[in-house]
Design a binder for these strands. Structure first.
Length: 273
DNA sequence: CATCAGGCGAGAC
DNA sequence: GTCTCGCCTGAT
C-alpha cells in the first residue's frame, strides 16, 4: 500500500469525468471513498479521504506504473491559476472539477472505448466495455484471489465476427470495432508508431480507422497519448462554446493544454454544477 | 411511450 | 468540400 497527499486530485471526479470506463466506485464510507480500477492488465484499489490517497499496490508498482498513469507529477494548480479571472464560465468549471487529472491510458483500449462511446451514454458504455472484457479478455486474478479481466487486444477482437459483437449489444458500433481490429491486427495502422507521433500525425493516423472521426480521434489523443493540446468537441462542448464563447474560445491563451480545460468544461456541463 | 446519448460513414450535391 | 440522413440499444 502506498499513501500520498495530493492537491487537485479527486478519484471520484476522475471517475465521473468519463475518460476511464473501467474505474468504478466500490463504496462510500464516512468521508472515505473507495474505487477499483482495471487497467494495464492489473487491478488496483484506490481509497481517498480528503487529500490523502491510498493505492493498493507496492511502492515499486506505484512508482513504475500508477504515478505516471494518474499524472501525479502534472501541475494542475498552474493550469487553474492560468485561467483568465474574467472568464466566469471557465473559472466556475475549473473550480468545480479541480480534482480531475488526464490519465495516461492504454492506446488500444481508448480506441475501442471511444468507438463505443459515440451516440451512447456513460452507463451503457461501461456496460458494453465490461461485457467485451468478460467475453473476450483474459481472465486474471489478484494475489488475494480477486478475479478480473484484461482488455482484449486487437488480435483477439479481429478474430471475432461482427455478428458475434452484435450479440454483445454494441449495436452499429460492432462493425467499427471489427474493422478497426482488423486494421490494427494487420498492421495497417501501427499503434507503436502512433505512440511516437506528434498530435497532428497521430490524429491523421487514427482517422484511418473505421468509426474514428474527429471527435473520437481527439479523445484518443488526449486520454491515451496524453496530448493535452487535443480538444474534443462533442455535443456538450459545442453547446457551451455556442452559449458562452460566441466570439471564439481563447485557444491561443491556453495553447498546449486546451484538453485539460476541455475536461473541466465537459465535466461541469455534464454534472450541470 | 418517445427521445436521446461524449458521432460517424455513405451518398447527394 | 459541405450537408443530410440513418443507425443499435437501453436509460430516463
Amino acid at each position: 500500500m502506498v499513501t500520498i497527499t495530493k492537491d487537485h486530485f479527486s478519484i471520484r471526479q476522475i471517475c465521473e469525468s468519463g475518460q476511464c470506463f473501467r474505474l468504478e466506485e466500490l463504496g462510500k464510507g464516512e468521508e472515505e471513498e473507495t474505487y477499483a480500477l482495471t487497467a494495464l492488465g492489473k487491478y488496483l484499489e484506490i481509497r481517498q479521504k480528503g487529500k490523502r490517497i491510498t493505492f493498493g499496490c507496492s511502492d515499486l508498482e506505484f512508482e513504475q506504473i500508477w504515478k505516471n498513469y494518474f499524472d501525479l507529477e502534472g501541475d494542475y494548480k498552474k493550469v487553474i491559476d492560468s485561467i483568465d479571472r474574467e472568464d466566469r464560465y471557465l473559472m466556475r468549471a475549473a473550480g468545480y472539477g479541480s480534482g480531475i487529472r488526464i490519465l495516461r491510458q492504454d492506446l488500444w483500449e481508448m480506441i475501442v472505448s471511444f468507438l463505443i462511446s459515440q451516440q451512447n451514454n456513460i452507463k451503457r458504455i461501461r456496460k458494453c466495455i465490461a461485457s467485451l472484457c468478460q467475453t473476450y479478455g483474459e481472465q486474471k486474478q489478484t494475489p488475494d484471489g480477486r478475479i478480473f479481466y484484461d482488455f482484449p487486444g486487437p488480435e483477439i477482437l479481429s478474430r471475432v465476427p461482427a455478428a458475434e459483437l452484435y450479440a454483445c449489444n454494441l449495436g452499429y458500433r460492432s462493425r467499427y470495432i471489427h474493422e478497426t481490429s482488423l486494421s490494427v491486427a494487420r498492421g495497417e495502422v501501427d499503434l507503436e508508431a502512433v505512440k511516437a507521433m506528434d498530435h497532428g500525425q497521430a490524429r491523421q493516423e487514427l482517422l484511418k480507422l473505421c468509426g474514428v472521426g474527429e471527435k473520437v480521434a481527439e479523445c484518443i489523443c488526449l486520454f491515451a497519448l496524453h496530448q493535452t493540446e487535443a480538444f474534443p468537441i462533442d455535443t456538450h462542448i459545442r453547446q457551451v462554446l455556442d452559449a458562452w464563447y460566441q466570439d471564439g474560445f481563447p485557444f491561443a491563451r491556453y495553447k498546449g493544454y486546451e484538453g485539460i480545460l476541455q475536461q473541466y468544461i465537459f465535466y461541469y456541463d455534464l454534472r450541470k454544477g
